[in-house]
Design a protein around this nucleic acid. Structure first.
Length: 421
RNA sequence: GUGGGUGUAGUUCAGUGGUUAGAGCGCCAGAUUGUGGCUCUGGAAGUCGUGGGUUCAACUCCCAUCACCCACCCCA
């Protein structure tokens, strides 16, 4: 029996849950402030959804999906990204018939990609994402970008950069493809093997090749921004005006292209400086053709996904920890057989008053109970010994200053609860 | 998928062929009668990742395998 979690997965242990819950609460609150409601879709979908939605020329679909046949012979795939499932739900349940826009978010959906694990890269990770459907103009683009920035800011992060780009639409991208191909064609021999392949399938992806030779060729390539049609240009200008109006220090980077085929017009990334260079924290953009591609009406959309494990990486890099609530506030120490039941009773009374209370389950010595309670960070210990029980009272000790007083057992739960305020 | 590194108590790590494998931290217990943090003392705890092989003898050398870390690739 191999007791080991599968490669590329991680356990979230009890000691980390406060961190996750703090992040999740921040996400929920900011999404709610922007009028987004939670959607939960299945962990797996029909493979075809991703082949059509994400695009079957992408690396994700070509080599990174967890795909298998179920017992009914259906081809099933574990979600490799968050948007397609949300779009499928929107189309299937005809949410677009509701007043527009339709705004939804998903919170820590597990995302699966079969890759070699590395720094900030797992086979199962978790994403928060927001999707806004039905808005053609750049206000929605700005809204989702600003919301993710607010979340990161509220978590206390500094020095994150926002990069935006426009990759055009079906009207203007072909013109750019032609121009880009023409440029790459004249330097074809200098391209790496992979880029020669990209040249055929998706020349845009040559732009973010890291090979030196390709970089040099790309440096001289035409920029997509010179080929945007009027509508795309106007959209991009509009987005930038909105970001500037909010004082967002973004950078236009014609090199960001994104690894999913569904994007149109706006694409963006929020990038962190890891010790080994840049790592994308958040990626997103506009996908005006996706709803239709999945079988719905022609409906524009824009959204992003952000990896929670990467947020945690960056929080650790920046030395940020959540406000810690003590696991236990009040510890009820008892001595011997006769103290056990009164301790249990007092503890339950405290819990009924909303106090995090616990007692000794381990039959430890009083000293050990104190040590244990102190390690839990409790602020009050109530002591039930033989002497106190005879007098119908209980000792209440405040850990911070060591002050201790005897109170009648009757009504002491309320007294303690009041002391915590 | 390709290449490099690592894998020894709960944890961080020492230990490179030869008795019962060690340390810090953590854990448990004690330091006079029923009281935490500091200190001192003691204790428990290890299939040396796993499986083969070489050898009189393997944590140590060789091979395979698994996992982790790093690079490429790509991305959250």
């Amino acid at each position: 029996m191999d007791i080991q979690n599968p490669k590329g997965t991680r356990d979230m242990l009890p000691g980390e849950s406060q961190l996750w819950q703090w992040i999740e609460q921040t996400m929920r609150e900011e999404a709610a402030l922007a009028g987004y409601q939670e959607v939960r879709t299945p962990v797996f979908e029909h493979t075809e959804l991703f082949e059509r939605g994400v695009g079957d020329t992408t690396d994700i679909v070509q080599k990174e999906m967890y795909t298998f046949l179920d017992k009914g012979g259906r081809s099933i795939t574990l979600k490799p990204e968050g948007t397609a499932g949300a779009v499928r739900a929107l189309v299937q349940h005809k949410l677009y018939a509701e007043p527009l826009p339709v705004k939804m978010y998903y919170l820590n959906n597990p995302i699966f990609r079969y890759e070699n694990p590395q720094h900030g890269r797992l086979r199962e990770h978790h994403q928060f994402g927001m999707e806004c459907f039905g808005v053609k103009g750049p206000t929605a683009d700005a809204e989702v970008i600003l919301t993710v920035l607010r979340i990161l800011q509220r978590l206390g992060m500094r020095d994150l950069s926002v990069k935006i780009n426009s990759i055009g639409c079906p009207a203007c991208r072909p013109g750019y493809h032609t121009a880009l191909r023409a440029h790459l064609q004249s330097h074809y021999e200098g391209l790496c093997a992979q880029c020669k392949d990209r040249f055929e399938r998706n020349p845009l992806r040559v732009l973010d090749c890291k090979q030196q030779g390709c970089q040099a060729i790309v440096a001289g390539a035409p920029s997509i921004l010179e080929y945007l049609c009027g509508e795309c240009q106007q959209h991009f200008d509009g987005l930038q005006a909105l970001l500037r109006a909010r004082g967002i220090g973004y950078k236009v980077d014609p090199g960001i292209v994104r690894g999913l085929d569904y994007y149109t017009k706006t694409v963006f990334e929020v990038v962190m400086q890891s010790p080994r260079g840049e790592l994308a924290l958040c990626g997103g953009g506009r996908y005006d053709g996706l709803v239709e591609e999945v079988g719905g009406p022609s409906l524009p959309g824009v959204g992003f996904g952000i990896g929670t494990e990467r947020i945690i990486l960056e929080l650790n890099n920046q030395g940020i920890a959540p406000p810690q609530a003590p696991v236990t506030q009040v510890y009820v120490a008892s001595l011997g057989e006769e103290g056990r039941q009164p301790a249990f009773q007092l503890c339950m009374d405290l819990r009924a008053l909303g106090v995090r209370a616990d007692w000794d389950h381990m039959d430890r010595s009083l000293k050990a109970q104190f040590r244990f309670a102190d390690k839990q960070g409790v602020s009050i210990i109530a002591i039930l010994g033989g002497d106190e029980l005879q007098r119908g009272s209980v000792q209440v000790k405040r850990m911070a200053d060591g002050q201790q007083a005897e109170h009648p057992l009757e009504g002491v739960a309320a007294t303690i609860a009041a002391m915590l305020k």
